[in-house]
Design a protein around this nucleic acid. Structure first.
Lengths: 202, 202
DNA sequence: AGAAAAATGAACTGATACGTTCAGTTTAGA
DNA sequence: TCTAAACTGAACGTATCAGTTCATTTTTCT
């Protein structure tokens, strides 16, 4: 019985994720989710309190999944080009993935209804990368590889260059995502400007 | 008759803007808009074809309003610090304004339903600033004030630093907007890093 | 003042959706 | 095989909402 219960619950979450991310919260109906699971509406309501509860569960799950993709990034202090490129690339891979983009769109749109989920999403992605980058910059600064007055400010600027204009266009639906080439050139340009700006003569 | 027609139409647009930007497309009801105008539902439908039509009209109007706030920015080639600061500041003022943020949220959320409006919004704000900045960088490059291999790339990186992390947090509802001090220090840090990165020794 | 246009408000249609209920069926485990 | 839990499907109650209709009133322009 336990295995079935779990399997049903998983089917529901999977279908709900598909439909919520596709149509948004308001645009998704519980009937449609039940049908897609496929599961009876009664079963659906026996596993989740209601629509809001299910939505929150889906978003939490998706957050965890995205966080998992943030694999440990190698950051050697001796080579800031390689280190920044690695962090930058991981960040770009994360925030430009189709899964992340749809998640962002839904959360931003439904933010009035679920204020707490915005924080959850930010803490799952942007924030951990920011922390990792800050501590890496701190290392670089301590070892006098780079001169960085405020690692927090510098970290934000660096990530900003990666997220900036292109990401916004993706959110607005003007762009599907980034191609491999675009990712490489974007990260390269950002790393280059960042290092020059901090007095690193290659 | 013309004056009344116009006034009614304006009331409707004003109320619709308030309610759409507050609750999103799905969360706004035509009854609520009619009530807020205040106007009868029949009148509302005599001025606009339907909900989608009204929504598109509201967004278009809001786009125009935002574009108007993009006052002509002074950009003297001789002083890139002042020029970049001016452009950066205008951009920051625009994209972090409460009006722009709510507009972005609604459009991003309802983007599945109104794919064309995303382009409209991007073309009203980010894009014109990008064009202006690119041509300014071109001037700087031609006059050998800065060395810029690709003005398009550099322009995007600069605007990215201004929009990056903080703006995303605002979209997610984690931040209200930017204070005067935050704006100044953000623009200052971005200009500084950008100029150093392009070999401009102050 | 008088005719024509615009606005009102209230009721109505049709559709959708959340959530519940329940009698009957399937499944799981001892 | 038997029992208890889980599941089904379909109907139901209630609510909301887009959009329409229409008889009546208000406004506007000549």
């Amino acid at each position: 019985m336990n295995t079935v219960r779990f399997s049903k619950r998983e089917s529901i979450l999977l279908a709900a994720k598909r439909i919520f991310l596709l149509h948004g919260y308001a645009g998704a109906s519980m009937e449609a989710i039940a049908e897609a699971a496929p599961v009876s509406k009664a079963t659906l309501y026996s596993h989740f309190e209601g629509k809001q509860d299910l939505f929150a569960a889906v978003i939490s799950l998706q957050c965890e999944a995205l966080l998992d993709t943030l694999v440990r990034v190698q950051t050697e202090v001796r080579d800031p080009v390689a280190g920044l490129t690695a962090i930058g690339r991981a960040f770009v891979d994360l925030i430009y993935s189709e899964e992340a983009l749809t998640l962002y769109r839904v959360i931003i749109g439904e933010q009035q209804l679920f204020p707490e989920l915005g924080g959850r999403v930010y803490r799952t992605g942007p924030e951990p990368v920011l922390r990792k980058l800050s501590s890496y910059l701190e290392d670089l600064s301590v070892q006098r590889v780079l001169e960085i007055p405020d690692v927090g400010v510098s970290a934000r600027l660096f990530l900003g260059m990666l997220k900036g204009d292109e990401h916004f266009r993706c959110l607005l639906g003007q762009k599907e995502g980034l191609s491999e080439d675009e990712k490489i050139s974007l990260v390269g340009a950002a790393v280059d400007l960042f290092l020059r700006g901090h007095g690193y003569a290659e």
